[in-house]
Design a protein around this nucleic acid. Structure first.
Length: 874
DNA sequence: TGAATCACG
DNA sequence: ACGTACGTGATTCAG
């Protein structure tokens, strides 16, 4: 039998302490959670360390207590409880409830008194007690039987008060704490004490005369001012002691036997943590990990199914060995609804006529997680997946882009479904990763499908409630199919071209390397910022312009400034530039060319970015060099897949600034776009009050930088860095800009204001991004969130527009019976390939579709060009 | 595994 | 006074 131990918590005091100890946090609904979070982490820690058998959380009952009849100013002058804290009290209660702990409060009494009374009972029984509070007053309860834990900053840092510890700290016994309070008072509870007597004096007095009464019985031993003060405040001192004394005779109606504790209600606790977004706790808890018992799901492993079993409205899940779905083996397929669950090994799926027909039947609705992945993987075996009506990955991403995850388990957990294990648990991680035996795998895959089936209605309802159904159903879902086709099509890359460039680069790199070593006077690893820093700043003694967390910064902007200082700099910059081309683009891209078709098949992440943009991986085809000529040549390796075909590229002109003009309704900016003039020049004219002819390149460059700055959520510092001017000058630019475009200023102010109010910002097509940090008390976090609030509607709306354009474009290509197809998307541009003879038609259709996909208060414009390589389509 | 760097929009 | 531009992914080094 385990040893009994009683844990008593001072609920109110701990909630207060946690609130002020931690930065303001909010959950997705904008409810503040820092106090509950601190309370939870503290509790988790103590429970693990102490294993109590009895528990109680005591709360203060109301404002008025029996102490007020002694002294009506008791706890007077206290600041009102901040509303951010008040709203958390109900959650603290819920938390205690989920932990299955007894909670108790008593009219007219404070939590302290409840705790004191129980401590006394426990002491009588010899039951060991731990009292936990944020309030040092409780330390008076310390005894050989009772230890008082006082939380320090961070909540998990705890000071343990035993009688010995009190003695060391104050030179007093725990019982004397109240005498000390009597003499020195307590500002937080508005206990007066003796004015002019502080902790030092109180301790000194009590060392000689152990109680307040004895101090006064021997008052003649004191002299001077101190004596006067003591005499004048005798009544007040004695009253103060009474106020500070915990009442251990409170008329409580519970006893220790009622406090037996058998551990938390994990389901309830888990649900609450979920609601409060305590993701780290969820992950840490055993409940979510391997030991967790998941409910058995009844399913059967079959080799075939007949048409009557393959119904409309089932969840399907194709399990693929790893994330690289263009090549990774397909393992098996689960087909699940409320009544049935089947698992079919992938070889059997490919063999089965009926299952193939079902998968390709658009009239049979299917629910999946990551339709693009499944579509691509099925397409490898000639199965054209159709009829997908629900994609949990996309729906969850629209619900909240922060939910993005490749792992079904973590996504459904957000919606309260936890009968599923994470992919890490099933496969293991890192080098230990391996495919589990079929029995485990099939169970898991069926659960994945069942999870999709289960949360579907809930997620769809949420999208409807938030008016995001249209974004989901008319943009993201159809886009997934288009992206799958783009990925499957791939883009042809000529390995020989890359190879030739690589050989040439290699020669140059060897030369530059030798030059650098000669100038440095020694060999070192140029690719190591650390070693390079030593050479530049210690060996060569160049001035240090910027430091990083770990040492000297050797970033390009720093090296640029050092150019005049030493010849070595330009060689290092050259080396870096060419080295990047070699490793990332020549070698990196070559590795990704598929043997069989000489193509690169990237994967677009459709549910990843916070703003709604796509991203591209393995390889990233959205950051192929263009700005510098040497790098731009890489694009010569990208070619059409067939003889007689061309590449065709079209890009939106200034889409983000046009979106800004539209959303801000700024008349000057709208006018500038209506005039069709170069926007940076026209900005320069406005800001510098000059005519078009008077705008020189410096002014245009400055105007361009400010335009970018505005889109990013401007700061004078950022602009000053970008333009390499003083902060003052940058601030001046911004001010003049905002005077020239007053609508922009109003818009920027409003958007932050509105985001603070509702907790999120939205885009043109009602995509959301939650910004809890807008309420942070941390300046950095808050400023960042404010800039994000300004940037996301712009970047996100631009992303919405091109996504819609891709859908419209696919339709237009079809309507015109063109062979042309979209291959790549790079945020504001689309790259196509097509037979040469279709170019003329594309030149008409593409810019038209792109310009008209949405109607803004300013025109949208797309520029375009065709060529034999991507380089030439410029 | 995280930091630094640099490629893109 | 606070310390910064927004959004990504790949490579390299080093602990």
């Amino acid at each position: 039998m385990t040893k009994e131990k009683l844990l008593l918590l001072d609920g109110n005091s701990l909630a207060y302490r946690a609130f002020f100890a931690l930065p303001l946090l909010t959950n997705e609904q904008g409810i503040h959670t820092n106090s509950v979070y601190g309370f939870t982490t503290m509790l988790q820690k103590i429970l693990t360390e102490e294993n109590p058998t009895h528990m109680l959380v005591a709360f203060d009952a109301g404002k008025v207590t029996f102490r007020h009849s002694t002294y009506k100013e008791y706890k007077g002058g206290r600041q009102k409880t901040p509303p951010e804290l008040s709203e958390q009290f109900p959650y603290v209660r819920k938390l205690v409830e989920a932990y299955n702990m007894k909670q108790y409060e008593l009219e007219m009494y404070e939590a302290d008194d409840i705790i004191g009374t129980l401590v006394k009972q426990a002491d009588a029984k010899g039951l060991p007690v731990i009292v936990v509070s944020g309030d040092k007053d409780l330390t008076q309860l310390a005894s050989d039987n009772t230890t008082v834990y006082i939380t320090r900053k961070g909540m998990t840092d705890i000071e343990k008060y035993t009688p010995q510890y009190v003695k060391e700290k104050y030179g007093l016994t725990p019982q004397q704490i109240v005498d000390m309070k009597g003499l020195m008072g307590d500002t937080s509870d508005n206990i007066p004490g003796v004015p002019g007597v502080g902790e030092k004096t109180a301790i000194k007095l009590l060392t000689n005369y152990p109680t307040v009464d004895e101090v006064y019985e021997n008052i003649d031993a004191q002299k001077g001012k101190l004596k006067e003060k003591l005499v004048a405040n005798e009544e007040q001192a004695k009253m103060s002691k009474v106020l500070a004394t915990i009442n251990c005779e409170a008329p409580i109606t519970i006893s220790i036997d009622d406090l037996q504790w058998d551990g938390p209600n994990m389901d309830a606790l888990f649900a609450l943590w979920n609601e409060l977004d305590f993701k780290s706790l969820i992950e840490k808890s055993d409940y979510a990990s391997e030991e967790k018992e998941t409910a058995e799901l009844n399913y059967t492993i079959v080799t075939d199914l007949d048409a009557t079993q393959l119904k409309d409205g089932m969840a399907i899940h194709l399990e693929i060995e790893n994330v690289h779905y263009h090549t990774a083996p397909q393992l098996g397929l689960a087909i699940v609804d409320a009544e049935n669950a089947y698992y079919i090994n992938y070889e059997d799926v490919v063999q089965s006529e009926s299952i193939r027909a079902y998968l390709q039947d658009a009239s049979k609705k299917k629910y999946v997680f990551d339709v693009k992945k499944q579509q691509v993987a099925f397409a490898r075996d000639g199965i054209q997946l159709a009829g997908v009506d629900f994609d949990l990955l996309l729906a969850a991403y629209i619900d909240d882009p922060a939910f993005a995850s490749e792992d079904i388990a973590s996504v459904v957990k957000v919606y309260g479904f936890s009968d599923i294990q994470t992919e890490e648990v099933i496969y293991g991680k890192g080098a230990k990763r391996e495919i589990p035996e079929v029995a485990i795998l099939s169970q898991h895959v069926c659960r994945e499908a069942f999870a999709v089936f289960t949360v579907r209605e809930q997620v769809m309802k949420k999208l409807q409630d938030n008016e995001q159904y249209e974004l989901y159903y008319t943009i993201e879902l159809p886009l997934a199919k288009i992206l799958a086709d783009m990925e499957t099509a791939g883009i042809k890359v000529d390995a020989d071209t890359l190879n030739t460039m690589g050989v040439e680069l290699k020669g140059k790199l060897v030369q530059i390397e030798a030059t650098i070593y000669a100038l440095a006077g020694e060999k070192f690893n140029i690719n190591s910022p650390k070693q390079l820093g030593v050479i530049l700043f210690d060996v060569l003694g160049l001035p240090v312009i910027k430091k990083t967390k770990t040492g000297y910064s050797t970033a390009a902007d720093v090296l640029d400034k050092l150019k005049p200082e030493h010849e070595i700099i330009e060689h290092i910059l050259q080396y870096r530039q060419l080295g990047k081309l070699q490793s990332t683009y020549i070698e990196g891209l070559t590795k990704e060319i598929h043997e069989d078709d000489q193509k690169i098949h990237t994967r677009y992440q459709q549910a990843l970015t916070a703003t709604g943009r796509l991203s591209s991986t393995d390889p990233n085809l959205q950051n192929i060099p263009i700005r510098l000529e040497e790098g731009r040549k890489i694009r010569q390796a990208f070619i059409p897949s067939q003889k007689g075909w061309k590449l065709f590229a079209a890009d939106y002109s200034q889409i983000e600034l046009r979106v800004l003009a539209h959303m801000s309704r700024d008349e000057n900016m709208i006018q500038a776009f209506l005039n069709g003039m170069d926007i940076h020049t026209s900005t320069a004219m406005k800001v510098f009050h000059v005519t078009e002819d008077e705008v020189d390149s410096t002014m245009r460059r400055a105007a361009k930088a400010v335009n970018f700055g505005i889109v990013y959520g401007i700061s004078d510092y950022g602009l000053s860095q970008n333009l390499d001017i003083s902060r003052k000058e940058a601030a001046d630019f911004i001010e003049r800009y905002l005077e020239s475009f007053p609508g922009v200023k109003v818009y920027m102010d409003d958007i932050v204001e509105e985001a603070k109010k509702q907790g999120y910002v939205t885009t043109l097509l009602n995509r959301r991004r939650y910004l809890p940090d807008l309420k942070s008390r941390n300046f950095n976090l808050r400023s960042f969130a404010e800039r994000t609030a300004m940037n996301t509607p712009i970047q996100g709306s631009a992303a919405d527009i091109i996504k819609k354009a891709m859908i419209d474009m696919t339709q237009a290509l079809k309507d015109n019976n063109l062979q042309a197809r979209i291959l790549l998307q790079v945020h504001d541009e689309l790259i196509f390939e097509c037979p040469e003879e279709e170019i003329t038609l594309l030149e008409k259709i593409v810019p038209e579709v792109m310009a008209n996909t949405v109607k803004l208060d300013v025109p949208l414009r797309a520029d375009y060009s065709a060529g034999d390589t991507w380089y030439d389509a410029k």
